[in-house]
Design a protein around this nucleic acid. Structure first.
Lengths: 220, 220
DNA sequence: AAAATAATTTAGCTATATCTAAATAAATAT
DNA sequence: ATATTTATTTAGATATAGCTAAATTATTTT
């Protein structure tokens, strides 16, 4: 049984919301995430329930099923592989890839994805540092902490961002930070939690606690 | 004003039918080409007429407009660039690419196509030997003749096929012919027009007149 | 020129995916 | 425990893209 593009997008949104720890995901949550109206969501939840990728009880929100999770992870896998392709092969900036990947992820061809994966040399993380699920939906994530929770003198590598809005990504680019950059915490201001960071053993960078909390670091 | 995926597909079909020399393209022709019913075509022609990519007079078929031609060629350009990508980078066989390219051609991102074009080194022909229109819809085609119209002892290179059905492409693969192969006509049987061909200065190949008429050759 | 046939269009239906407005259920506050 | 507020669903639209069956127009045959 196949899902339409719209259904795939809803399922992906429900998967992401489910991962945020809540027991169940509400109609309103989904509407906010998808930028649609709750009325449209109700209808879609009924359909997804019938297709058994979610468990839906009217008025009480939804739970994603195992089958639903599997399918959402397939879509996420495709999205992230295309992002790697766009950045590494077509020289897109990492803040330009999301929209296009959002379209590419719905192309139906298991062979295409297999070949793309091989062509890209089986990448394990996308350009934002998010892990790429394997064919079976397994994800190997790296242990990572927000930059602002590191101690002075500790070092690591930027591997992901929490807020991947275009605005934030552009900001990072501007100040010379990027996924993969090697960093060291030079100073933490006790008063406001702002940080002084050494990037790639060259540049010194000042950032607010807020910015720091949006940057995830693999410690070394 | 944008076209939907379905509208793009109809327009492409109308463009191809228009190229076959007829003055105007009929509803039935389009229905046959698109595997839909004439009733559905009537409706779509009305819409495409309103969007001014075709000129539509009820009961008298359609003419594609300049704007329509420009748009059809953009879609064809995208389709053929993706085919090159699938064959050259992802190692697809040339008889496996059509379906996937049919989906990929509808991704909306001028930047993507620009970058893909550059990544592929600005190819001028797709894996079937068909020319790739440039950004402005200009097409440079090579003069080419059907293999069965060549004389004995003449040489050339296979650059395209007329019938690009999967069955025919598989047949060619099986017998060791391919786009790009250098060939020489060793013999033509007067009785039935069948041919004896030397492929890549190594293999000898016998083929019927029918097969020969489906293979297009750039003479040298 | 009328009749028969073929091509095309229209009308009305289905399915998807959205919306607004109204109705209803659940949660919260008094 | 009742009233208010919030969340959710239902009902009824709209738009796209397809279908069948009936109606209409164009073409061909006699």
């Amino acid at each position: 049984m196949n899902l339409t593009t719209a259904e795939e997008n809803y399922l992906k949104a429900i998967y992401h919301l489910s991962e945020e720890g809540k027991k169940s995901v509400s109609t309103n949550d989904v509407a906010a995430e998808m930028n649609t109206k709750p009325a449209s969501v109700s209808d879609m939840l009924r359909k997804l329930g019938e297709k058994e990728v979610i468990q839906y009880r009217k008025y009480y929100g939804v739970h994603i099923t195992e089958e639903g999770k599997r399918r959402a992870l397939q879509t996420i896998r495709k999205h992230r592989l295309w992002e790697v392709f766009l950045v590494e092969k077509l020289n897109f900036a990492w803040d330009e890839v999301h929209e296009v990947a959002e379209e590419l992820e719905h192309i139906q061809s298991p062979l295409l994805i297999q070949r793309l994966d091989a062509f890209l040399n089986f990448p394990k993380f996308d350009p934002h540092g998010d892990p790429i699920p394997d064919e079976y939906g397994d994800v190997r994530s790296r242990p990572r902490i927000p930059l602002n929770e590191m101690e002075v003198d500790q070092s690591g590598q930027i591997v992901a961002v929490k807020d991947s809005s275009a605005a934030f990504l552009r900001y990072l680019d501007k100040v010379g930070a990027y996924i993969g950059a090697r960093i060291k915490v030079l100073d933490k201001v006790e008063f406001d939690g702002s940080l002084e960071i050494l990037v790639d053993q060259k540049k010194t960078l000042f950032m607010s606690k807020d910015v720091g909390s949006n940057i995830l670091v693999l410690q070394s």
